[in-house]
Amino acid sequence: MHAAVPGEQPVGPSPGPGALEALLDRVSRGDQAAFETVYTTVAGPVLGLVRRLVRDPAQSEEVAQEVLIEVWRCAARFDRDKGSAMSWIMTLAHRRAVDRVRSAQASTDREQRVAARDHTPAYDEVSEQVERRLEREQVRRCLGSLTEIQRESVLLAYYRGCTYQETADLLGAALGTVKTRLRDGLIRLRDCLGVTS
């Protein structure tokens, strides 16, 4: 492992501030070792996020692989003035997974995806990195500070790929309400998590 970041572990801890950005800069110049470190940092969250949306394990891996290769391909287009590298990569992953979910038209396909849900291996709590667990606990705690409608709206949109129209249908709420809840829910989450940009 040609880790550029001191203390790099085999499974996805976050490197220090600015480290991922610096790595992407090297990746943009064709540095495969730097890409391997980027992979180590982001593969877990990319796959986890895609799997939440796409559900079918094989399709999820396919989409996650596309996303990671897209990171390699487009590293030069990353613009740190527009946000962090992690945010750029997760936005890319989310977009790809949402596209996959929305273009899966045939109901049989949908059915299979839904059925696949039950075969997704349970998360192995024991192997979970401490840092990752802390992250998860903090997010869970902050999600708990949202109102039910805010939380449902954010989770349906983010983890299920629902449009706000679909979210409104599902929650039996007005469109305007869902738009507002998506925004104020995320703002509350931002403040609780202490996200800065």
Binding site: S14, G48, E61, M90, E135, Y158, L193, V195
Partner: peptide, 22 residues
């Protein structure tokens, strides 16, 4: 920008260990 950074935290919280060979 800030809301995307926030959403990225939801992704981190969903992290899974990739399967062998990935």
């Amino acid at each position: 920008r800030e809301l995307r950074e926030t959403a990225a935290r939801l992704a981190l919280a969903a992290a899974e260990t990739p399967p062998a060979g990935f």
